[in-house]
Amino acid sequence: MNEQNTAPILEVRELSIQFGGLRAVDGLNMRVKKGQLYGLIGPNGAGKTTVFNMLTGVYKPTSGGIFLDGVSITGKSPVEINKSGIARTFQNIRLFKAMSVLDNVKVGMQNQTKYTTIEGILRLPRYFKEEKQMTEKAIELLKVFELDGEQAALAANLPYGKQRKLEIARALATNPKLLLLDEPAAGMNPNETAELMETIRFVREKFDMTILLIEHDMKLVVGICEELTVLNFGQELAQGETSAVLNDPKVITAYLGD
C-alpha cells in the first residue's frame, strides 16, 4: 500500500451521524483509490447503507468530512453530489417503473444534454441532434448489460436480475467517477451472481471506473473486492486487503458470534 503515491478518489474522514440517541455511524475513515474495487461489508444493521446515504447526500452527516478528488462534498444535496461525479444504485431497486428501459437510461444522461425546455417544445435542431446522440449512447450502454433487446419494455416488467442491471446502467449513464453499488447481488441465484461479478469487472475495465460496493454475498466480495472495510454497530472493525480482513478473528466473531 503506497498511499503516498496514489491520491484517493474518495476520502472519508471521521464520518459520524446521529439519529436521536443512536450513533448509526461513528468516526468512519476510508480511502478509496482510483480504479479500485472497494467493499464495505458488515452484519445487518451495521450502518453500511447509512454510509452510502451520507456519501450521496440523502443524509447530512453530523460530523466528519467526505472528499471526492480532494474536494469536500460534505452536506451537499444529492443532485450536486451526482454532478460532482458519484452515482449509485439502491438496495431495494428504485427504477422509474412506468418508463421504458431506454428512457430510464436516458434520464440518467440528462446532465450531459444542453437543449432547453423551450427548444424541446419547439423541436429545434438541437433537440433532434442531442436526442439522437442520447439514444445511441443509451443503446450502447444497454448492450453492455445485454438489455438492448428489451429497450422498449417497461422497467417494471423486467425480471429481477435485469432490473438490477438496468439500475447499474442508469447510474453509469450519469457519467460518474465513482460508482456506489448497494447490495448488487441481493436476491440473485449463484449463476446470476457469477454473471454479475463478470459485469462489474467489465464495467471497471471498460469505463475505467472506481467502484465501492456493499455486499453480503461473500463469494462476490472475495471474488472481486481488492480492499475492504468492515463495519459493526456503526464502527470500523477492520480495514485492509480482502484476504487479510476476512481472516481477522474480530471479523469472524462479528459475523458468526463467539
Partner: peptide
Amino acid sequence: DNYIAAQSVG
C-alpha cells in the same frame, strides 16, 4: 416514479 432515484441521477 421515484423521487429519490431521480435526485440520485442528478
